[in-house]
Design a protein around this nucleic acid. Structure first.
Length: 647
DNA sequence: ATTAGGG
DNA sequence: CCCTAAT
């Protein structure tokens, strides 16, 4: 289908703004052409808007090379949508509301950038609001001229020399919802270097301006997501399989998104053919899949889960905004059950409880790493889902949605939100020791159990982050300081079963997506297994010197080979340390102790401890040797006795 | 569930 | 850290 657009905005001819390349997209089927149009149009609108904003920015802040612009717009797009191949589709965009505010360069310091949310402050135009404005859907309005909803959620420009214009926009047509986000790179010192179209984000991938190194922009990139509720499988494939087919390297996205952390942490590229070869053989068994992880080179299963999860959502439905609100409402009746079904997808999940402490002297890089660690730790320890209705946490998992005022007619769907929360275990670092005889080298150590427990947080103060109780943060509204959102990669996890909603945190059990059958709706009551946990390699948590000390001490007493006892004695409250971990750590300790200090890596372990490791190792090896000999002796004598008695 | 050892 | 085999 050929679509022609013409956009006007306050006299600004948007058609003069170069358009983003669309070759990335593949129009696969006629059936989805309507959706394609939606996407293209929305992207164009974005591009146009960004251009317009840039223009305004240039004039309004010409004196300053830095500008922070918060632009809040609501647009009303008139669009003529024609199904015919030749007929044009015209769009008119009028800005209803604009608010330009610039800040001085000094206001845009890295501290502010990091500490506050001065990059982007989203003003979400809720769907309810938009509907209140009388905006009508477009899908299905063949040969008709109808109003189409377009809204810009936020626009921000910031940085020193390189500017980034971020535009978040939603575009709604009936039950279809297109969320768009684009980052535009400009040189504020030389506005002529506008490179908007090349940096437009498509399909969730990242396209950098020509000749731009991704790394150099890292710090400035903040927002890049594109959610197109185009229910074409092909498009989803493109969306998520960028790593092998579309060649859109994720690692170039330098912002804090779970997808990045997960992928850069353990994810490596896997040959597509290899992957499918593996998955074919796995026979639907999750465990098998993850067993093959090595072969898969750390292929991140989240991606696949997301893909297939999305695939299940063949109906256009509700979209949960990044603030947890629903941006599009669509309630349909289940054809099978004749029951009311709530359908929606989750665009992103908020992690409100990430609390990060870093010293003032910390570098930006270390801060990034810290946040990265915090996020990966959150994932590694397991997450649960919190359900919010009108900002309030819904605690009773047994209530039905209607009971929770979440019925389709209740209209409360606009206020449905989800949060990612730390798993039920170890929200805070646990005390290392639970018994009084452990750890004796630290000066502050007390031999008293209760004091030890009380002192343990201090022990762990080196751990730079705490995953605080989400409820606390949410209810007390403390997230003021760090409003910047962490958008998890699986931002498109969708839950479209009422049952799923009403169940507990397992509501987000992800489909393994190994087989086509996996696309079928999975009743949640099945297995409480959290595939996210299975799939995810545990976060690496290097042992601290304190922990090593504790371990050495325990092994000195208990010996090697009694890891369960070591665990119970010294690491009972450190739920992230299994006895296998302790055993492994001892193994590496022995190895570390036997190599030269130059060969060692990571946080240096005091030589004194290593000496003790070696000593204990020798000692207990000897013991084992003796025992073995005893055993052999015993069996030998038994054999002798037996043979003697049988004589 | 634990332990031991290879990867 | 993960995985497996053997207890």
């Amino acid at each position: 289908m050929v679509v022609k657009r013409k956009l006007h905005c306050n006299g600004f001819d948007f058609s003069t703004i170069p358009k983003a390349p669309r070759s990335i997209r593949k129009v696969s089927s006629e059936k989805d052409d309507a959706d394609v149009d939606i996407e293209i149009t929305a992207i164009d609108l974005l591009a146009s808007l960004a251009g317009k904003l840039l223009e305004e920015t240039e004039s309004s802040s010409s004196s300053s090379t830095n500008a922070f612009v918060r632009h809040h717009l609501v647009g009303n797009v008139k669009q003529e949508h024609v199904e015919d191949d030749v007929k044009p589709c015209k769009s008119e965009l009028s800005l209803l509301q604009g608010d330009l505010a610039s800040k001085t360069p000094s206001e845009i310091t890295s501290e502010k950038y990091l500490g506050n949310d001065c990059i982007l402050e989203q003003t979400l135009v809720s769907d309810c609001k938009r509907r209140a404005l009388g905006l009508k859907p477009l899908v299905g309005c063949e040969n008709k001229k109808e109003d189409c909803d377009f809204h810009v959620e936020s626009v921000g420009i910031m940085s020193e020399e390189m500017g980034v214009v971020s535009v978040d926009a939603g575009f709604e047509q009936g039950e279809a919802s297109v969320g768009l986000s684009a980052d535009t790179f400009i040189s504020l010192k030389d506005p002529s270097h506008l490179q908007f179209p090349e940096s437009l984000h498509l399909d969730g991938g990242v396209k950098m301006p020509p000749g731009t190194d991704g790394g150099s922009l890292k710090g400035y990139r903040n927002h890049s997501k594109l959610v197109c509720r185009d229910d074409d499988d092909e498009n989803y494939c493109k969306y998520y399989r960028f790593s092998d087919r579309c060649n859109r390297p994720l690692t170039r996205v330098g912002h804090l998104r779970m997808k990045k952390s997960v992928i850069t942490k353990y994810g490596r590229a896997i040959p597509r053919s290899k992957f499918f070869e593996d998955t074919r053989r796995t026979d639907g068994c999750l465990k098998s899949l993850y067993r093959k992880r090595k072969l898969c080179h750390g292929y991140n299963p989240w991606k696949r889960e997301t893909v297939h999860r999305k695939r299940r959502l063949s109906d256009k439905g509700l979209v949960v905004n990044s603030d947890g609100g629903l941006s599009s409402e669509s309630v349909t009746n289940s054809p099978q059950k004749g029951e009311s079904v709530v359908k929606f997808s989750i665009k992103s999940l908020r992690i409100p409880e990430l609390f990060i402490e870093v010293p003032e002297t910390a570098t930006v890089g270390s801060l990034k790493r810290t946040v990265m660690e915090a996020v990966t730790a959150l994932l590694g320890d397991g997450i649960r889902i919190g359900v919010l209705v009108q900002g309030k946490k819904v605690r009773d998992d047994n209530n039905t949605l209607s009971q929770t005022a979440l019925s389709c007619r209740g209209g409360n769907l606009c206020n449905l939100g989800f949060t990612l929360e730390p798993g039920p275990t170890e929200n805070l670092p646990a005390p290392l020791c639970s018994e009084n005889h452990v750890i004796s080298t630290t000066p502050t150590d007390s031999t008293n159990l209760s004091e030890r427990s009380a002192a343990s947080p201090a022990l762990d103060s080196r751990i730079p982050f705490h995953l605080q109780d989400a409820d606390h943060v949410i209810n007390s509204g403390i997230c003021v300081e760090n409003k910047q959102e962490l958008v998890p990669y699986q931002s498109d996890i969708s839950v479209d079963e009422e049952q799923q909603l009403s169940s507990d945190s397992r509501a987000l059990v992800l489909v393994s997506a190994l087989e086509p059958e996996a696309l079928a709706i999975v009743p949640l009551n099945e297995k409480p297994k959290r595939s996210t946990e299975i799939s995810q390699r545990r976060t690496r948590r290097p042992f601290s010197v304190t922990e090593v000390e504790s371990l050495v001490h325990a092994v000195e007493e208990l010996g090697t080979g009694r890891w369960r006892d070591v665990k119970l004695r010294s690491f009972e409250n450190a739920s992230h340390r299994t006895y296998v971990d302790l055993k492994d750590k001892w193994k590496t300790l022995v190895h570390t102790a036997s190599i030269t200090p130059q060969q060692r890596r990571g946080e240096p372990v005091p030589q004194e401890l290593l000496d003790r490791v070696l000593a204990a190792h020798r000692c207990w090896s000897q013991q084992h040797q003796l025992k073995q000999n005893e055993k052999l002796q015993g069996t030998a004598t038994m054999v002798v006795v037996e043979s003697g008695s049988s004589m």
